[in-house]
Simulated assay, not measured.
Amino acid sequence: MLFAVSGVTTDPWIPPLVACAVSFFTSMGGISGAFLLLPFQMSVLGYTHPSVSATNQVYNIVAIPSGIYRYCKEGRMVWPLAWAVVLGTLPGVLIGALVRVTGLRDPHSFKLFAAAVLLYIAGKMVRDLSVSRHAAQPGPANAPEGTSTATVTRGSPATVTVTGCTLQRIAYTYQGETYTLPVAGVFLLCFIVGIIGGIYGIGGGAIIAPFLVTFFKLPVYTIAGAALMGTFVTSVAGVAFYTAIAPFYPHLSVAPDWFLGLLFGLGGMAGMYLGARCQKFVPAGVIKWMLVIIMAGTALKYILEFFA
């Protein structure tokens, strides 16, 4: 089957099947899976136009709501954190989208950029895994923001309770332990990450998940929903932006391939719902190591292709 906008020729069942498998695992870590679908589209399907970024974001729009619904239903959505992520990444994503169209049109250079992003995320996850045993220990009463301040209570409910939300900090409890984080720090980090995400075509919120776990010592079970919400909102803005500027680049494929993105999204919808439902039964370390291996392998492949 030929997809006219992207020029991709593939069987219509392949995009939803790949998206379902990818999103099932990545959604457990608060990542939509778009960062893995992009190299699949570029390397396997041969889709290297700038519009691949917008198509990736169409996938996010269709797929993510099912995962968000599941996290909300289970009481594991930290809404103040979700909106902080959205407000921080949104302007950055728009800047990144403009850079993608005006400064990174060459797919050869874009692959090297994608490899750098993937390696950086993988490195952050490895660091988080190396300190996870220490982060799990209860901190002192005057622990810095982003660290735990209470001992986990055996039998505590696996739901989130927001205990404080101001312009300075957000605080919530999960399984008897309290976590705090500075709003300004989250906003600045999300803005920077949003620029990278806008260039890479993953909405911005996707990359923020490992940063929240590493920098602010937050449990992956509580940030997944917020990160997905950030990815969803910023992806809507990203698709709107790419569509709006497409007429200014008539000789360049900028607008998304809606049908291809929809097929990816339908598969991702099923995968994210199942992933969000199963997340609490899977050790966080297993999820992170799996993502590290996939991201590092993809990045190394891109680096070898760049210097070949």
Rank of each mutant, 00 (worst) to 15 (best):
V162M: 08
S53F: 14
A141W: 09
S130W: 05
A158Y: 01
P15N: 09
L262F: 14
V99T: 06
T151N: 08
W258S: 01
S53Q: 14
L189W: 11
K73S: 13
F241M: 15
F191E: 07
G96T: 12
M272G: 09
L212D: 01
T180P: 03
V62S: 01
L167E: 07
V22L: 02
G197Q: 07
T55D: 13
E74Y: 05
F191W: 10
P39C: 04
Y59S: 12
P157A: 14
M1N: 03
I192P: 01
T222A: 03
A224V: 07
P247T: 05
P80K: 10
C165W: 15
L36I: 09
V236C: 15
C190W: 08
L291F: 02
Y200D: 08
G261K: 03
V131W: 14
F216D: 09
P12G: 02
K111C: 01
H49T: 12
L260V: 14
M77H: 09
A143C: 10
V85H: 04
A84M: 15
A84Y: 05
L188Y: 04
A296V: 01
T166C: 04
I207D: 14
D128P: 00
I294N: 09
A135H: 12
G238R: 09
R105N: 10
G194N: 07
A226N: 05
L260K: 13
A114K: 04
F216P: 06
M295P: 02
A240P: 00
K288F: 01
I14N: 05
L263F: 12
A19Q: 10
R277E: 04
M42Q: 13
Y174G: 05
L129K: 00
H108M: 03
G88R: 09
T26C: 02
G205M: 02
E74L: 07
Y200Q: 12
A84C: 14
N60Y: 07
A284L: 04
T55E: 10
F110Q: 15
Q279I: 03
G261S: 09
V254L: 08
S132N: 02
Q137K: 13
